[in-house]
Amino acid sequence: MYFGKARKKGPLDRVPPNQNVTTSFPVLHYGNVPYYKTLDDWDLKIFGLVEKEVILRYKDLMALPQTTSGNDIHCVTGWSKLDNVWEGISTQELARLTYPKESAKYVILHAEENWTTNLPIEDFLKETSLLAHSHNGEELTPEHGYPLRAVIPHLYFWKSAKWVRGIEFSSENRPGFWEENGYHMYGNPWKEQRMTWD
């Protein structure tokens, strides 16, 4: 499934193989879109192989140092959206609150409806990785992950979980929802790691 027109001009090194550039922002997900009337009961739990487990309310997250990051994103279904600007909290900042243990080699992102995805800790802590609350100057919409979504731009975008509620540091690389259903365990768009056999 493809969206938009194929890129004809410009810096081709920004577009992985067999991707088409779109200026829209397609909405793809499994399950229901959560709508919050209030964030009074919302929280983010950081747990697992850490020295200090932390539970953060939304106001706590907004009080942390904020970062802005520009990047391109690439969906496993074949679209790429260039020149995105995200605002949120650096994953490195979140790790500083909890002190992951040396035995923590992977991160499992937990989202609403028990949805998960996995990635190596190095990818989670990359300088370009963050948990975002805003996109291109506007608060995220529910369809795009409000109030908080991961942004791991160097991997296929299913690794950038919407509606994040938990960050688990783990010694095991446990497959998440899409990985259990045939998607690649890593998801490098430049190597076209879309499915298990890629």
Rank of each mutant, 00 (worst) to 15 (best):
W79Y: 15
S80Q: 05
S80A: 15
L82F: 04
L82D: 02
N84K: 01
G88A: 02
I89K: 11
T91Q: 13
E93L: 06
L94F: 01
L97I: 12
L97R: 05
T98E: 01
Y99M: 09
S103P: 00
Y106A: 15
Y106M: 15
I108G: 00
E112P: 09
E112L: 01
E113Q: 14
E113S: 11
W115A: 00
T117P: 01
L119E: 07
L119P: 01
P120M: 14
P120Q: 14
I121G: 14
I121Y: 04
D123Q: 08
D123V: 09
L125Q: 09
K126T: 05
K126H: 15
T128F: 03
L131F: 10
H133I: 11
H135L: 14
H135C: 01
G137C: 12
L140S: 11
L140M: 14
P142D: 07
P142A: 12
E143H: 14
E143D: 14
H144V: 05
G145L: 06
Y146C: 13
Y146M: 14
P147V: 09
L148Y: 02
R149T: 03
A150H: 03
V151H: 04
I152V: 14
P153I: 00
P153F: 04
P153L: 02
H154L: 07
L155K: 11
Y156P: 02
W158L: 07
K159V: 14
A161N: 10
K162R: 13
K162M: 07
K162S: 08
